[in-house]
Nucleic acid binder design. Structure first.
Lengths: 113, 113
DNA sequence: CCTATATTTCGATAATACTAGAAATGTGGA
DNA sequence: TCCACATTTCTAGTATTATCGAAATATAGG
């Protein structure tokens, strides 16, 4: 993943409403939820929700699928995986940071003598 | 980690200049770099760099330490780890997303080869 | 075709973020 | 103390983002 893509993904998630939306959809899994149901869950204006869904979708984190009159949004797990991988590889000191974290030198306070 | 903290961290990284700064500092490790060296690397105005460092620091992703007339910034790897963990746990469907994800290896001894 | 429902786009406004010059602060050395 | 240097804060201009009512578009069913 390129850094520009990563920035786009991070920006998409870096907002209360959008992070909440994305988390909800992750819980729902690949089937996702239709816009109306998401709106009901958060009680935001339809236009606002549509704006956020568009942000998440153009960042590649959501995929939309039409089903009758409804449009279902679901996470693109592969893209999210790529984003997390980017972070562990580029922002965590080469894997030393994340899950398999090695108890290396914790930062310690300067001793004032 | 709470979602508000996560949003702050994501927002801090969701910007070209800041992501670049953070990646550079991750490469440099716990020693970090002083502001002048970072400025030299990117050629941005001192005030602009200071603004970005403040953003990253108040999101908890950087720590500053004074050394003589210089101020060194280094990543807070623990905080970054917490952020990545938040994402894998809340935004990746509990492992559905990150295939290479190994469930919490607590305090594993480093094999010295 | 007409109507009801679902969702998006338009347009306007308010809020927040980015950039950088200039001034201020902090630090060490002469 | 005074100076030189490193960094931050102040201030302002510009740009981007968030919100939402209203209008437009799409879809299904009669």
């Amino acid at each position: 993943m390129e850094s520009k893509t990563a920035v786009a993904g991070l920006a998409a998630l870096a907002q209360d409403a959008r992070l909440a939306i994305f988390r909800l959809l992750v819980q729902k899994g690949p089937e996702g939820l239709c816009v109306g149901d998401i709106a009901a869950k958060f009680g935001m204006a339809a236009a606002t929700l549509s704006f956020h869904l568009k942000e998440l979708t153009s960042a590649g984190l959501l995929v939309a699928r039409q089903e009758g009159r409804f449009i279902y949004y679901a996470p693109d797990f592969e893209e999210m995986n790529a984003l997390v991988s980017y972070l562990t590889e580029n922002c965590c000191g080469g894997g030393t940071c994340a899950p398999a974290y090695r108890p290396v030198a914790r930062k310690r306070k300067e001793k004032v003598t």
